[in-house]
Nucleic acid binder design. Structure first.
Lengths: 326, 326
DNA sequence: CTGAAAGCGCTTACAG
DNA sequence: CTGAAAGCGCTTACAG
């Protein structure tokens, strides 16, 4: 049996669809009598308004599109949680679309959002300015998270501040032969962390060696095993995220190297695992980042403006056992 | 400037909107010439089809609604990841709605899905049969995950099998004074685990004591501290999830009790933290659960049927250090 | 306070 | 192969 529509309700309540619509939306130009008849008919028919049709009429969907890349578990859940918190506070739903690594269809995923959402949050650390511009439908309010772009409103992690804090902490605790394990090639977070870290070490008496990782735990293990196999010596390792740092810790333990006495280890993100490992890291309040992104987007929607400002989300160094000085 | 519509494209290409529609949808009754003119006009105008309007016409949205309760981090990200995997394979988007604890608005959240999605995945372990029936719009295809309901298709974790496996493992390794820390009151998973666990211990020579927790790490700590404060003795603890088990381990360590020599500890879920803690647990392939739920839903949509079958998702005992027999 | 009608941006029989 | 028109389920000026 077909779902009931507003016409069915109108017929049953013996009023016009206009009156039903007014009653349902709690407008005040409706008599009590009409309101009651409509309420009854709605109940009897089990009527639920068709949000899609409503959106088309109103040119307003009460939904926000969220486009995310393949995200490491914790980051994904936390950022979505933050967005959801802010969205449901305002009565909005989230329309989710993962943008998978190979970006052939990623553009179409974004376009599929048009007409279903009022605005977009997009996180695409691997896209260039041009690709971002290409993907975003013109006229779609959007806030970019951790994404290259000069033309749009954006929020970014202050990766440089975080990496610099780690470097200074290493230097202050007397580390001299320092290793950095970088994240995924082309990833903007990875690049900013690596660059700021190296800049902070440069010109000091410490030496820096950078290896390529890919943000996976396994790549942290491999990096350390490679170093040890080459007979390299080092007294500190900064992994570009906590998962790799966890791999580093495993590999060091397996090799019999003591942390932090022989080697200090730090990560980035402060995922829940980090505190269990006693891992020194850079705390990113991910949920807050998501919340803030939605805040910005709502501001744009409310004011109908296009604030193309950049905003930095400051992280914080958390010192734990893996770098305890001495 | 207003976004371009199909009429704008038609005008520019000097054809009818019908032809534009046909060309855009790759129908074959379109001449090459028309197709080319449309393609040009689309490009010149930066036209992106309005998915909302399309859905209304087609009575088909290519979106699936996902209603989840407040979920502990890992569970949330994994189940959404599994669903997204299956959804994007089929070209569907996910419309997300968190159902927060106090369920006054949760019903409206579900109803807001009508007309925006083709089907619904709902996870509501805390709702009764009646509440579930009340919340779901009639005629909306739905698959329930870990949710009470006789009237709908559902997938559930086989909590009983998991809990039973833990009990048998404790008994087989000679544990006699066993503690269970249960999850949230009224939560169906919590209840099934507690019941099956107690049934499996009953009638053996071992004693069982059950405490109330709420799935939080903190509640695991509190449970153990309470027991110790009362002077209770025990040699095995089964926490209803890994987070509480982690709290248990912390409390035991602080009290100077050795694991597993003095007390064996097991959890449930196998979150990433579990392997780092060497925690014996029951592995739930959460992403697979999400994937399977969507599979079921797609089957229903394809066949236009209403398979009200229940399905159990079997978990697996993973033995690690915290219960090593030795 | 109420209703008839136009319109939101698409798709698709129907007729040619 | 093409176009005019009706329809998807709502909302909202407009007239009364």
């Amino acid at each position: 049996m077909r779902d009931a529509t507003i016409r069915d309700v109108a017929r049953r309540a013996q009023v016009s669809v206009a009156s039903v619509s007014r009653a349902l939306n709690n407008l005040d130009n409706v008599s009590e009598k009409t309101r009651a008849r409509v309420a009854d008919a709605v109940k009897e028919l089990g009527y639920v308004p068709h949000a899609g049709a409503r959106s088309l009429s109103l040119a307003r969907t009460n939904a926000i599109g969220v486009v995310l890349p393949d995200l490491y578990g914790e980051f994904f859940s936390e950022i979505v949680r933050g967005m959801d918190r802010e969205a449901s506070r305002r009565g909005y739903l989230l329309l989710l679309s993962n943008m998978h690594a190979g970006h052939p269809q990623s553009e179409s995923a974004v376009r599929a959002m048009r007409g279903r959402v009022d605005g977009l949050i997009m996180m695409a650390p691997h896209l260039s300015d041009a690709e971002v511009a290409e993907a975003l439908p013109a006229g779609m309010p959007a806030v970019l998270v951790n994404t290259h772009s000069d033309a749009h409103a954006g929020i970014r992690l202050d990766n440089a501040a975080g990496a610099k804090a780690v470097a200074q902490h290493f230097l202050a605790t007397g580390r001299k032969r320092i290793v950095h394990i970088a994240g995924h090639v082309g990833n903007i977070d990875a690049e900013e962390r690596a660059e700021a870290f190296s800049k902070a070490i440069e010109g000091t008496s410490a030496r820096l060696q950078t290896l390529q990782g890919d943000f996976s735990e396994e790549s942290g293990v491999v990096a350390i095993e490679t170093l040890l196999a080459k007979g390299a010596t080092f007294d500190a390792v900064f992994a570009a995220n906590d998962m790799m740092a966890s791999g580093v810790l495993q590999a060091l333990r397996k090799a019999g190297l003591r942390v932090p006495e022989e080697v200090a280890v730090a990560g980035f993100d402060d995922i829940p695992l980090a505190s269990h490992l006693g891992l020194t890291t850079v705390r990113v309040r991910i949920a807050e980042l998501g919340e803030r992104a939605l805040d910005r987007l709502f501001d744009m929607l409310d004011s109908n403006t296009d604030s193309a400002g950049r905003e930095l989300h400051a992280p914080e160094l958390v010192v734990r056992d893996t770098t305890a000085s001495e």
